[in-house]
Design a protein around this nucleic acid. Structure first.
Lengths: 392, 392
DNA sequence: ATTAGTTTCTTGACGGCGGAAAATAATTAC
DNA sequence: GTAATTATTTTCCGCCGTCAAGAAACTAAT
């Protein structure tokens, strides 16, 4: 499979990346603003922007007559923004039974989505399907291939972005799989691999609620309960590939048995399947999926009680995160949040009770999440790689 | 109070700091080794070392005949080490009822120790006493004042090193105290303030078990249970001044009531006073201090059981830290560790049970801690400030 | 309309600093 | 002694960011 020449990142060095990301994450900004935000001199900003503008990554915003209201004296600023369509990226999240793929532009706006069921979890099959999916996605518009920046792939489990290895993925049953090499060979594209939750954290860092925060955490509520951490200017990876593992935080030592062997883990109480099991058990009703469980809870107090208990468990987890890291914000997201109105109050109450001192000051931000957002996270990893290769 | 000119840090820029800290923390190293470790070129290392050597901070090691055993061909390397006596630092830990002060050399080796009771916790009184203590300490040798690098002060609570403010200290009952300014005025010395646990973490980072680790955590077991975190090349401070607050991690929802209002916090089970209370209650014996409690536990199974329960709680906390951050190492320290043999097994068992996957691979390092070590931590902060001002 | 005042952006000179390569140094292996 | 090998130093080069001095593009007076 031959592929056209991919766009080379035009980023000169650290300063170029810094300026680029500042504009990317900070919306349209004048050069003077960028200078202030980055701490660079105005001259340095001008010089750093030159090649980026020449290559078409940055463009000056057309002045729309009466710009920002309070215009002061002096030469008016010329805001610069990212030319989002200059370059496209693909992101694929690999789950145990499905591939989710997206194409995004430079600002991580999703341009195309495709899902593809996985019949087999064998490495070769996954690679083949993945290559086919990406090929389909990039086939949707000529622009995608013509100016392609990179492919990001995210997998749950212990993953090493540097070596491109999936060290261990429980869902797929993989160990020591050189996934990047395989996917790169099959697609001919530049590939970057990352853990799924960390990929989501990267997306949040640059394109979501993490923008401007010195530290934040992303807590995902779904089948499992996960957590991505951003501290000291970087996403936390963990020395052994594990980090942000809050799903097995013990909440109730007499609680339900968790698959990890202990009792009363957050995940065993507030994970989607745990909720379903509890509701079935408590009410005797047959609930097949979360949607019907939510439906039921709207009328059945016993079912509602299950959600409250789950909310309590989540609140405990959030408080633990806040106490531990003291992040500026915690973003709570995940498919499980469809039932947010059922959780909400209990989450906040428990959080407030257990957050210690000033740790309780951290913002709790709710952000429902679609499955596609996981793939978008993978694309965000590719974008980050493209713009700031040294960072990750 | 006039003071002689303090040593100016001879550190040129980031590279100078990097080279200096590499030698400081890595023992004697040849220039070639430093180049490898830092990723700099050999030329850059030579250049960076020049002014440091000229100023007497680095010295070449005398070759002691038969150096390292396996000497290979080629020009022999000239190891360089830090001249520890080139410069002295003071560190003071402020507690509710006592000041603990030390003088250390450049390698944080303690050269002098003094304690000083605090009759009053009023800000002015503490400042006065602190100045007197430091003056006494520095009076112990002419060298101290002659080549003094800086004073570090550590306080428990919410502290902002940048502004030099104690934002809130529960033990002292202080709020918004500009402590650095006051101490600097009273002593005429360059002063740096830091939270007590973070100061200890800095000491560990440069002069203890944190050396060479990309990430680690320090868990202190004493009256309270605290935790300092080092991730992504820096100590974690928390957006709101709170970080590493694991003392109130819930372990047993039916456990003893904690002063924070919840039940079964780690601290309410494994904190020193909690242990004493439990032992008194369980055995009916009067135990005044931890030492007698330990004594008792060696013979009394019921008392021993209290330590086991405490060990379990600590193990849970350690597992939470490991799961959360995935640090390379966890250093467990504190006065409470005098009873280490009583805790040990239970700590490790519980940790192994609750550490998730690869998070359990992290090293657990036991390091008993004296009260003086807290002051040494404060001195380490001053040393870090002296050598790498930009870092913190 | 002209002039002064302001703020933004650009340009060019300058300097610090790290890397590459060559020179120098100090030993071991023959 | 000569060659090989490794460490350190020196010299030179180029990148990159700051500083200072314009140039540009407006507003506000006069």
């Amino acid at each position: 499979m031959r592929s056209p020449g991919h766009s080379r990142p035009p980023v000169a060095g650290a300063t170029g990346s810094l300026v680029f990301t500042t504009v990317l994450t900070g919306g349209p900004l004048s050069r003077a603003d960028v200078a202030v935000r980055t701490g660079l001199s105005a001259a340095a900003v001008t010089k750093a922007m030159k090649p980026l503008a020449d290559a078409g990554y940055l463009v000056e915003v057309e002045e729309t007559a009466e710009d920002q209201g309070a215009r002061r004296v002096g030469r008016p600023a010329t805001p610069v923004r990212v030319h989002a369509e200059r370059c496209y990226f693909a992101g694929v999240k690999v789950t145990g039974d499905e591939l989710i793929g997206v194409v995004t532009d430079l600002q991580a706006t999703v341009c195309a989505v495709r899902h593809r069921p996985l019949r087999s979890g064998a490495v070769e099959d996954v690679v083949t399907e993945l290559a086919a999916l990406v090929s389909e996605l990039l086939g949707e518009s000529d622009s995608y291939r013509a100016s392609f920046g990179g492919l990001g792939v995210s997998v749950g489990g212990d993953v090493d972005p540097e070596s491109g290895m999936v060290r261990y993925s429980p869902f797929l049953g993989w160990r020591q799989v050189p996934f990047v090499a395989l996917v790169a060979a099959a697609t001919g594209l530049p590939v970057r691999l990352e853990n799924d939750v960390r990929a989501l954290t990267v997306a949040e860092q640059w394109f979501g609620s993490g923008v401007g925060a010195g530290s934040f955490a992303v807590v995902t509520v779904g089948t499992g309960i996960g957590c991505g951490l951003f501290v000291n200017e970087r996403v936390v990876s963990g020395a052994h590939g594990v980090a942000g593992e809050i799903g097995h935080l013990p909440v109730d030592k007499d609680g339900p048995l968790c698959h990890c062997g202990n009792r009363g883990c957050v995940e065993a109480i507030a994970g989607n399947s745990a909720i379903l099991a509890q509701i079935s058990e408590t009410t005797g009703a047959e609930v097949a999926d979360l949607a019907s469980a939510i439906e039921l809870a709207r009328n059945d107090p016993a079912a509602r009680r299950v959600f409250a208990v789950a909310g309590h468990a989540i609140g405990m987890a959030l408080a633990a995160v806040a106490n531990f890291l003291g992040p500026e914000r915690i973003v709570i997201s995940g498919e499980g949040l469809a039932a947010y109105d059922l959780f909400s109050e209990q989450i906040r109450t428990t959080f407030a009770e257990h957050a210690f001192g000033a740790a309780g000051d951290c913002d709790l931000i709710i952000r429902p999440l679609s499955f596609d957002d996981w793939a978008r996270g993978a694309a965000a990893v590719a974008i980050q790689r493209f713009i700031a290769p040294h960072t990750s």
